[in-house]
Design a binder for these strands. Sequence first.
DNA 1: CTGTTAGCGCGTTCAC
DNA 2: GTGAACGCGCTAACAG
Lengths: 327, 327
Amino acid sequence: MTRISDVAKHAGVSVATVSRVLVGQGSVSEATRERVLASVKALDYHPDLAARRLRSGKTDTLGLIVSDIRNPYFTEVSRAIEDVAYARGMRVLLCNADEDPAKERFYLDMMRDENVAGVILSPTLSLLNQYRAEDFSFPLVLVDRCDAKTEADAVVLDNIDAAQRLTRHLLERNCRRIAFFYGAASATGSQRLAGYQAALAEAGLSAITQPVKPTTDDARQALSTYLERHRQTPDAVVASSGLILLGLVEGLRQHGLRYPQDVIVAGFDDMPWTRIVTPDITVMAQPTADIGRTAIELLLARIAQPGQAMRRIVMRGELIVRGSSAA
Amino acid sequence: MTRISDVAKHAGVSVATVSRVLVGQGSVSEATRERVLASVKALDYHPDLAARRLRSGKTDTLGLIVSDIRNPYFTEVSRAIEDVAYARGMRVLLCNADEDPAKERFYLDMMRDENVAGVILSPTLSLLNQYRAEDFSFPLVLVDRCDAKTEADAVVLDNIDAAQRLTRHLLERNCRRIAFFYGAASATGSQRLAGYQAALAEAGLSAITQPVKPTTDDARQALSTYLERHRQTPDAVVASSGLILLGLVEGLRQHGLRYPQDVIVAGFDDMPWTRIVTPDITVMAQPTADIGRTAIELLLARIAQPGQAMRRIVMRGELIVRGSSAA
DNA sequence: CTGTTAGCGCGTTCAC
DNA sequence: GTGAACGCGCTAACAG
């Protein structure tokens, strides 16, 4: 492996000069600068990042901990984050906590040990409930999940409003018995539940709610169980996430129920498949690319200005009406 | 930040002893061992990974470079890899090259600079074509893409066989004009093309092939263009990947073509949505979890035994016949 | 503008 | 079984 001293020798300068050229700080004459750069190229020298990090205490690595890598919502957000990072020459350490607080803790510890510049995290409910800013030695931005009382930088959807508007849309379609399947393990699920309940309360209707694990399989199961236990099928079934929505649609098919004729369907996240099923599906779309981009920019701002006030950035969902809730 | 010297002072021993306890090498009396461990816990000490890496030259970080993070195939594979890594206490640095050779190079360089223990990569065609084992300073395992002449550890599907079996299935359904839409940018696409062609040759039929970018949007476009240019619709359309398959189904819907009545549809990758569309879709499924698990195990074996012979592990696809190719 | 020097925090010889 | 001392490769402070 070629080290900085090799470059220095080759260029006929000291290691300090080479370092200055590489880091771009301090002043170096144009002539020696070019000589150094030539030597770097000639020897194919690459600084050891571990050494650099140890010495300078700085990193250009960001951490990203998502709660489910298989959820297209998170891959879209990740991609947006990585695009920005790549454009700035930064690295992203992407980890999948899998909705498991232990795994989340493991990766959070790892981020600290790696001395990353900052972390973007979609927290488990467990972490959110006992969140204290002092527990984190690095700048942290929350995405997707955050409640009003949490004192942290965050980028989230206006979940209550979004769920409320989605539910109102179904009420306008004359649905009275609207069953809401939501992920009970996340703050997002409960907030969307609250929005749903608010809309029903406005209409003076009673809620039908079913907590599920935020997976397609569990949602399908839950719907099956529900349908088998109740003689009367609901007017509409609503999912608090794209993965759950997929489970509901699978479940309806299994039970031979057609939509929108037998039951209306709607949910969150404008996933590709919602457009190609027949009929296509009404969804509350999230601006995933915006969310990712905003999150990393918020993080970089926090890194640059550690003292600035906490900001919670709330995005508005977009209702996309399709065949599954056709009049 | 608490350092190893703090722990040493707290436990009343030297830094060397603390290090020995932590690394688990050299001999330490049980009594002092426990005392050190108690101090570590009391001070909440965590070794600085950068320093450790610099000194020891070793890492327990693995790199994973996928070519498209939004492709469910890769997220499934990633998850399997990360599960194994997590179980062994290792980290995974996951990056998204986005089918871009420049980005791929950037991340590969980064892996080298980070001194990762090894890398799992789904290479671009560009990299594969000029692949030389000597170019990589770290153990490397290829996934999803690799041709027979590449001298590298790899885990891939038997693409030729898989495409051939899928095509034969369509021939058995009496399809004669079978259009094959394939990702031209990857080795995988061309191999599947070869399998398709082989099956057609067996039957004495001529091929209809359409290279596309491996994205849903491009596939939809390509199908539209094809349909508009040719009066006669093909008997069947086949996609060389799940993303392309989605584009074909979208395109058929746009053009008001029903399947399997107007045209039969099939493709690769058993994605969740292929089960819920009506009719559901015949696919060649890949054992994604197995592929991921095998890849990381192959990498770990290579790290442990740098001298062992290169291995290419070829997996068999599973044909899942569904409604889109119903008789 | 440039070179010399001192650590960053840790693992690892070598003595004891 | 344990401690002292060195150096991994690099950056930053200080001289010149």
